[in-house]
Design a protein around this nucleic acid. Structure first.
Lengths: 216, 216
DNA sequence: GCGGCAACTTGACAGCGTTAACTGACCGGT
DNA sequence: ACCGGTCAGTTAACGCTGTCAAGTTGCCGC
């Protein structure tokens, strides 16, 4: 029993005319699962994906041009759930400045929970070049645009100083929360070496400092 | 002319008894050069390194246990030059709060200039497990310890609020500058898509906000 | 001069992403 | 009812990768 051949090949099943997208979804699901299990892209081979789906490796290439685009598609899904998680916070009630704090805390929480996908989503090093047409309505950009609008709202309400432009403030906030996630993730499984305070102290303290520094 | 075989094999030279470390240094130099040229670890193969040095691939394994440790050694060197660059700033003159600002700006400048090595040095995703004994006197930890001490000095001088512990402040500062580097690097060669303000505005503005929020 | 050993080389293995060429199965048209 | 077309795969292979076991070469100390 070297190879599983679970879902499809074992059953002798073969997709009908319109069933291509079915396998495509199945590949995406399996790839995400394997990525979550093994942690990095390189640890998940095309052959392993194909085997888990129950299909031969070249079948993958019927639905994705290459490995990078497959994993971009997987990450794109994660990005969407990320945007869906943060969207409600953007539109929630309360003073703008409180929404900004909640947004940052949600961001860090999401990053910590999805630690396998996060570096792939937000890392500098994603080798694959994102297709330009897909990048147009990138979920991350939607969030960033929402953050800029939220900052403008806070500035209009007099809750944030206006001598720094809204995109500048948004960039500072984004850099801080992103750096915080990376700091926490990097020292995640070696807490005895680097004595960094735990997330429960760092994240609120950082927001205190940032929002204090942004007061008018 | 398929393979270069530059330095050693072409000359018929073979290392004497004590000349092992010579090749080791040469491997490190060549690997660093190739890494800077190609950007990522995966783009630099053991075979390419061996070929550039003028040696067969298994010869590399005489000096490094595997590929990961080779690249860790290369990164460790970069880390040392990083520490050497930041060390003087830590000990330089001026008020502690000014030194903190200069430290942050130097950090970002270093990160931007060494953009190929930076993600490998500071990324979450370095697959290799750093040998525990090497990690003890890690240059990055020395810098972090120096930053904590600097923050304590600033707190003692009454330049930074003392209701947040020094390690907490240091963590916030580190997360911010690191996130700023990643933000700038990530959007480095696609400035038309994400309209993020340039580094010359972001970095000083971020330090303004942080130091304002840290005022007593 | 000779054993020993450091420093390599040769040759190979298993696994990778990817491609070209082939094979069924289903569908619409005549 | 057959039949070409096309969708959805398969088989086989190429060139590449990191890595290892075994063999070879040449210097050093005795």
């Amino acid at each position: 029993m070297t190879s599983r051949a679970k879902t499809r090949r074992a059953t002798g099943h073969r997709a009908r005319k319109g069933e291509g997208p079915l396998l495509k979804e199945e590949i995406l699901d399996t790839t995400e699962k394997l990525l979550l299990r093994h942690g990095t892209i390189d640890a998940v081979s095309i052959r392993a994906i194909a085997d888990a789906v129950g299909v031969t490796p070249p079948a993958i290439y019927m639905h994705f041009a290459d490995k990078d685009l497959l994993f971009y598609a997987v990450c794109r899904r994660g990005f969407d759930t990320f945007a869906n998680q943060l969207g409600p916070v953007l539109a929630s009630g309360g003073r703008p400045i409180e929404r900004i704090r909640r947004l940052g805390e949600e961001y860090v929480r999401f990053g910590m929970e999805n630690w396998q996908q996060y570096p792939i989503l937000f890392g500098v090093h994603k080798d694959f070049t994102i297709p330009a047409d897909e990048l147009a309505d990138d979920p991350g950009l939607r969030i960033l645009a929402g953050l800029v609008a939220l900052v403008e709202e806070a500035q209009a309400a007099g809750e944030i100083r206006s001598d720094i432009s809204a995109p500048l403030v948004a960039g500072i906030l984004w850099a801080s929360v992103h750096g915080m996630v990376e700091l926490l993730l990097g020292r995640k499984d070696k807490p005895e070496i680097v004595r960094i305070p735990p997330a429960e102290e760092l994240v609120p303290a950082m927001h205190d400092v940032l929002l204090a520094g942004l007061k008018p």
